[in-house]
Design a protein around this nucleic acid. Structure first.
Lengths: 134, 134
DNA sequence: TTCGTTGCAAACATTTTGCAGTTTC
DNA sequence: GAAACTGCAAAATGTTTGCAACGAA
């Protein structure tokens, strides 16, 4: 598995949590999910480890969405959809990620392009249904 | 243009500031830029008016970039490049904005897609030069 | 007078950090 | 036992809000 020298229960739990879910959770969401198995886990620990994983490149950040940073255990480039209503984030694996355009972008700006992000915003199916019935 | 009554002096100045620049400023950057002509302008006023403009749809938000919300007076869909080093945001007008893919995305998620955002991240030319000489 | 806008300071929410105690190897 | 991790609480950050004062009609 990882090249970490030591195994720490909570650190491992945080990484596993991210890899098991497809909800692109925030630090707080991870914290909530882990409380069941680790009642004493601290939010600071979640933040610290998410930072670490991000620096190691073993998770990716989707950036701040509606003011809160969201994370993805899947580091493959792919497209995301954000529901502006319930803040859920979904993967759009079917769509072509524009990573191949990085070279073109680099030419235009005359700099170095490391990553790109394609994100759609709108209202998810569940929220559409909820709003109609309301 | 806008109704330039004295009452809306500062409001107009904020909007004009956004339309005159291509730096995609944050609230704080707008505040700094306006201080010269309006020494008594308050940061809260900048925040309030940016919120208002965003709600009116006459400016667009690029979302939180490195933890700070950035704005664009140009509401035309276009592509952006973010320098992770100096946090500058540049337009990439030459590149095709993927707005036309909203329909395809909507099909995949079964919801309603209102907007999309394509953003490249990396190091701008100025920062590359600076880093090399250092 | 009445309405909307503004400055100031306090409140807010998310994230980061210092430190003492604990866990892992 | 050394080094790394963790919980707690405090601090830091960017943003929002309450309120009194101000300006225009």
């Amino acid at each position: 598995m990882e090249t970490t020298t030591k195994q720490f229960r909570k650190r491992n739990a945080i990484l596993e949590c991210l890899r098991m879910t497809d909800t692109h959770p925030s630090a707080d969401m991870v914290h909530e999910m882990l409380k069941a198995g680790h009642p004493d886990i601290s939010l600071a620990t979640v933040y610290r480890n998410l930072s670490l994983f991000k620096a190691q490149g073993i998770i990716q950040s989707l950036g701040m969405i509606h003011g809160i940073e969201r994370f993805d255990g899947n580091t493959e480039p792919h497209v995301h959809f954000v529901c502006n209503c319930c803040t859920a984030v979904q993967d759009l694996h079917q769509m072509d990620a524009p990573q191949r355009l990085c070279g073109e972008a680099a030419q235009h700006i005359g700099g170095q392009v490391d990553a790109c992000q394609l994100m759609f915003f709108g209202t998810c199916r569940a929220c559409l249904a909820k709003n109609q019935s309301a």
